[in-house]
Structure formats: structure tokens, C-alpha cells
Design a protein around this nucleic acid. Sequence first.
RNA 1: GGCGGCAUAGCCAAGUGGUAAGGCAGCGGUCUGCAAAACCGCCAUUCACCAGUUCGAAUCUGGUUGCCGCCUCCA
Length: 479
Amino acid sequence: MTIRVYNTLGGKKETFETVEPKKVRMYVCGPTVYDYSHIGHARSVVVFDVIARYLTSQGYDVNYVRNFTDVDDKIIQRANELQMDSSTVAEKYIEEFNKDMGALNVQRATYEPKATEHISTIIHIIEKIFQKEAAYQVDGDVYFSVASFPEYGKLSGRKLEDMVAGARIEINPQKRNPMDFALWKSAKPGEPSWESPWGKGRPGWHIECSAMSSRLLGETIDIHGGGKDLIFPHHENEIAQSETAFGKPFAKYWIHNGFVNINQEKMSKSLGNFLMIKDVIKSFHPEAVRFFLLSNHYRSPIDFSEKAMEEATIGLEKIYSLLQRLMDQFGTKPETKYSQGNVWDQFCKAMDDDFNTAQGIGILFSTVRDLNRLLDNKDGNFTDQEKEEIMTSYADILRIGNILGILSLSPGQYFQEKRQKYVKKHSVDPEKIEQMIRERTEARKVKNWAKADEIRAQLEDMNIILEDRPDGTIWKFKE
RNA sequence: GGCGGCAUAGCCAAGUGGUAAGGCAGCGGUCUGCAAAACCGCCAUUCACCAGUUCGAAUCUGGUUGCCGCCUCCA
């Protein structure tokens, strides 16, 4: 089956063909670690996590690099504010990043390098760029000369002349061209620095990705990804540097994810509406967050709101409820003997078309409805063929969950976790609820409906909903 | 000012040439002591607007309007 990928370079969908057969070299720009990770980071990381999982499921050997920018002006500034060492600041937020992404069930990349671990490679590449006469030194700073790279602008679709005319750039008299960017920055006293042929300093922002990508994956890679905002200047500059240094294409496919808005506004410092992952998962289950993030196509913007999260939660629970039902009726998870079925095929078809998780989720819901219908109608009396069908779809749902990184818990665990979270947040007493339910059950036994309904109403006031099932009464929080 | 994107029901959203997936909400029904859950049915003759290409367009082309992003740190 062929996979089609939208390539920012060229602006259209292309057939996905790797440099080496069945091997994927993928590099995704990670965060600059000077603060907690926000929901926008989550989207990018989750989207590429799903892409890596999917490609792996299709038989590719995926070599995935996700870096940390651990030396940078903002980190230095933050370190000064906190009166800490900048590497300590970076370490702290790397740890927080891993904690957040772990909670979101993100798989670890093959390599998760830090810029500071690759200083010698960075210096080596800058030297190569000097050899190509595309770099120049001004005191201790080194700049890349965009005029030396005729294709500059090919990713973002801009022309040098237009950009310079745009004049929103601060003119730095040291630069030959206003669009030139730093490869190496000289160190001011007290700043973290490394020895280099140009004196003590640190790498510019863009060069680290060129270095780590080529070092860990090779000079031409298959996928280079990141948020849309990185297209210019970051990725444009990476292309200029790498292709100048190595004289070959840097990346075949450029994949960029869209933004997360908050209540229809862009997250920004001035609005103070940065939504941190650690806060979001206090209110919503991490799987619901993932489910939400994947419910739109990855290139479209997505609007985060309380309502949207509630809908995502309802959707996720609809699936978990079916899984609960299946488990109650057929025991534990379907054995591996149930091969990939029609549902999985449909899902793959959606994913093959530029990783269309939104469509994939639609398939998931249709399947849930089909299975519920079958379960409703047959009342437990299934022919062997029907059982086979059910178990195949059941297995497919779990397979899809595994690609999307959801449905990783048993339904029991999921609802338990959710309940515990609520109990903790609202300090309710489950024992008391159980007691009330027992009283109601007694009342129902003697057909004292008035009393039963009264208890139900009392519980409803406590935001609790009851479900009378054949095997007993269960309760849930309404929220 | 330059570049790019988007516009599909009450809401969210998929669909890029073959006659509108899916979800949420709502309404009617089955089930239930009553509910809930689940299921069934209803819910866009139409895809911002205007022209054009085509046997055929939400999908392609040109134009209009509106919204958004990037060009400055940003996922």
C-alpha cells in the first residue's frame, strides 16, 4: 500500500518513498527547554508519535530523532532569573517534558539528543560551510550568508528581496544581508560557552538540528517535522546550512503540524493563555487529550476548549464502554489469532492518505456502533462466524488504539482512574455512595419505587448517575 | 507591505472530479418500574458568494467577501 504525504516543500501530497527501502529516518524539532511544555508542544509530539507508530506498523524500521534545544538565549535568561545554572534549568525542563509526554502515552524516540552533546559536530559543520565560502566571521560571531544559497526561500515560498523589503527585521550592521543568521555566537561573560576556532561561544539556534540530524540519521533524511511556525526561518535556515555543507538534499519530506488555539485565540505571552500539559491533565484524562488532539487533521488548526475536551472525553468513553461490554461478554483481550480485519484495512487507508487520523477516528466510531448493534440484537447467542467477526473487529479496535496511543488501559482501569480523579478533586466519599445504592437496591427489591427514585435524585444532585444493569447497579460521575 | 492557509448542518469535523463519513447536541421510537447505557429513525437537494471549465464540481480555474497564520521568540 502506498502512503501519501503532504510535503511543505512543494506544497502538495507526494507518494512516500524512503531513501533506503523500508527504513525511515525521521527528525522532529523538539522544544527549547526553559519552561513547562504546553498543549501546543503536546500536539506536535503526539502527531509525530502517531506517525512513527503508524510507519512502524506498516513494516518500516523507524529511526526517530527528537531533540532538545538546551542552550539558547531564553534558557540563559531564565537561568539568570532563577539564579541557577543554565544547564540545571535545561535539565529540569527536560525532566518535566518527559513526565508530561509520558503521561500522554508518547513513546520514546530512538534518539533524544541535546544540542550541547553535539558541539563538536556543530563546529565541524560550520567549518564545512566556511570551506564553501557561505559563512563569515565578525569578531567572535559567525553568520551564514543567505546570498550564497540561491535556493534560499524554497521551503517557505519567499523571495529574499521581498523579505528584506518587508523591513520588520532589526537591522544588524554586522550582517552583510539582513536575513543572514548566526551559526555561532560569541559568549558574553558568565554565559555558557565552548571553545571554537572563532573563540568561546555557543551555537546559533538552527545549526544544532543540521548537526544532530546528519550525525544520527545521515546527510539526507526522509522526514523532517515540527510545528508550522518553524517553517520560517528555522527550517529554511536548516536547509540552507545542511545543503551547503553536504551538497545534497537535506530532507525529502517536510511535515508541519498546525497550531492549537485556546478558545479561538492563539496562545501567546501577551494574552497569558499558555495552557500547560501538566494543568490540562489535572482536569481531563490524558487519553482524552490525545483523542482530542488527533480528532482534527494534523495540518489544520485545532481549537482547545472545555466543550471540545468534554466531547472528546464522551467519545473516548463511548469506545471504552464498548470494550467493557466486549470484555464482560467474551473475557479478556482478543488473542493474537484474530488477524487484521476489514476495520484495520479501512483505518490504514485513512492513515495512508497523509495520516488522516480524523477519518480514522470516524471509522472507529462506526465500528463501535456496528458492534453494539450486533451485541444488542443477538443477546449472547452468536454463531461461530459472528463470534469470529466480533473478535476480529475487537482486535482491530485495539490495534488502532495502539497506533493512536489510546485505549491502552483496560476499561476497568480507565473508569477507575477517572473516578479516582473525581473523588480526589471533589472530595466525595465513595463508601457513602455505595451505601446509598445498597439502600436503593433494597427499596427496589420490595418495589418501593418512590424511595428508589428519591435516592436516585439525591445522587443526581451529587452529580452521580446510576445504571441498573442485569448484574447490578453501577454508578458514574455525570461530568 | 510581502507570503501562505482556511470557509462543509445548531456545534466539532472528514471528504480535492462521480453525486455530502463520523462525533456532539436536539427530536421521535425500542428497551426500562422509572431512568441510564445501547440500538433504530429524523436532522445539509447542499458545501461563504459570483462567474467559468466539464457529461458531471464541495472538490479544478478566475474573481468577490470574511476569518486566520507566518514574515520577531514560538509546537
